[in-house]
Amino acid sequence: MAEMDGYETIVVDTADGVTTVRLNRPDKRNAMNPTMHREMVDALRRLADDDTTQVLVLTGAGRSFCAGQDLKEYFHEIRDDARAREQARRDSHDWRYRLLYNFPKPTIAAVNGYCFGGAFTVVASCDIAVAADEATFGLSEVNWGHIPGGMVTKIVADLMPPKQALYYILTGRTFGGATSARIGLTTMSVPLADLERTVSELADELKAKDPLTLRACKEAFKGVDIRGMSAEASLSWLTAKSDQLRRQQAQAGRTDGAESFLKKEYRPGFAPMPRARA
């Protein structure tokens, strides 16, 4: 793995194919400032091409996942500097949506504590989100005279049932990890004491699968707005993606999963296909 030291607001660590990026401003509840946005852009770009990173985990230091944008450093301090404001906006959007949402390897958000406002975008952009039961989620923008800005309102509208989304947008009330899973913002919730183990087990399960297939599955779902496509367009897109994957696997010497299944070498309903060609 390339050297990833020297960041001020994040910590990057890789072990056994799993890279953990930890938002590291615990005294500010890991609120996102322009420096964090800039460093996350750099880290995600480098990790996307890092062969030692098979799975990416994103979490927060201390008792918070992320408290949203740093109101002082992201909004107030640069409000009169048009260039700095535009750069911060660009970096903020780039890493939380373009780079994280389209990251070429599986991503897991481990929501360990407070998760407010702009942090919803981080959770939504990860493929899998595991929340601690004790985590606290909230859209408090209404309480200080704003709407959930950036991509947050769209994210909430895409993931949550409309009545639930509007309820939390309009009231600013908080909710816990179990509710976050029930309304579709996260994948599941577990006790905080089990969060690290659960995420580790998920990462190990993903690592065992063919990386070319994992990437193709992500691209098939995320590469275009599959939900908005017609049946005919979806069929064309998915057929082309399947054909592309088979070519890539053949070039890489991957085992043909269907062939191995017919030889009774494995059970695809219960295990990933063998890595080496039979």
Rank of each mutant, 00 (worst) to 15 (best):
D127K: 07
A135Y: 03
V130D: 04
L139H: 01
V123S: 01
A132C: 09
A110N: 02
T121D: 10
V123E: 07
A129F: 08
N143F: 06
F120I: 10
N112M: 05
L139N: 02
F116I: 13
A124M: 09
C115W: 03
A132F: 08
A135F: 05
F120G: 00
A109W: 04
E141F: 05
G118L: 11
N143R: 15
A131E: 07
F137L: 11
A131I: 04
A132R: 10
A109I: 09
G117V: 06
A109L: 09
F120Q: 11
S140Y: 13
A131S: 14
N143S: 13
V123H: 03
A119F: 04
E134H: 06
V122N: 12
C115S: 10
A109F: 05
G113N: 04
A109R: 10
P106F: 10
F120H: 13
L139Y: 05
C126A: 09
A110V: 02
A129D: 05
A124Y: 09
A129Y: 06
G113F: 02
T136R: 14
A109V: 07
D127R: 13
V130R: 10
L139V: 13
E141W: 04
V111P: 04
P106L: 12
E134P: 06
G138W: 01
A129I: 09
F137K: 04
P106M: 11
C126D: 04
N143Q: 13
T107W: 12
E134C: 11
L139E: 03
T121L: 03
A109E: 08
A110C: 02
E134I: 11
T107M: 14
D127W: 01
D127E: 11
G117R: 05
A132D: 04
L139F: 01
T107E: 10
I108T: 13
N112Y: 00
L139S: 03
V142L: 08
T107C: 11
L139I: 15
C115H: 02
D133Q: 15
I128W: 14
V122A: 12
V130T: 11
G113C: 03
N112T: 05
A129R: 10
E141S: 08
G113L: 12
D127L: 07
G138P: 00
E134T: 08
A110L: 12
A129C: 06
A132M: 08
C126N: 08
G113W: 05
N143T: 12
G117N: 15
E134F: 07
I108H: 14
Y114L: 15
D127V: 02
A110Y: 06
T136N: 13
G118E: 14
A131Q: 02
V130K: 08
P106Q: 08
F120L: 14
I128H: 15
E141D: 15
F120S: 03
A109Q: 08
C115M: 12
D133V: 02
I128G: 00
A132V: 10
E134M: 12
Y114A: 11
E141G: 01
T107Q: 13
V123M: 10
F137D: 04
V130S: 08
F116C: 01
F120V: 07
S125V: 10
S140H: 13
A124I: 09
G113R: 06
G138D: 00
T107S: 15
D127I: 03
V142A: 08
P106Y: 09
C126Q: 00
V111K: 07
A124F: 07
E141I: 00
G138I: 02
A132I: 11
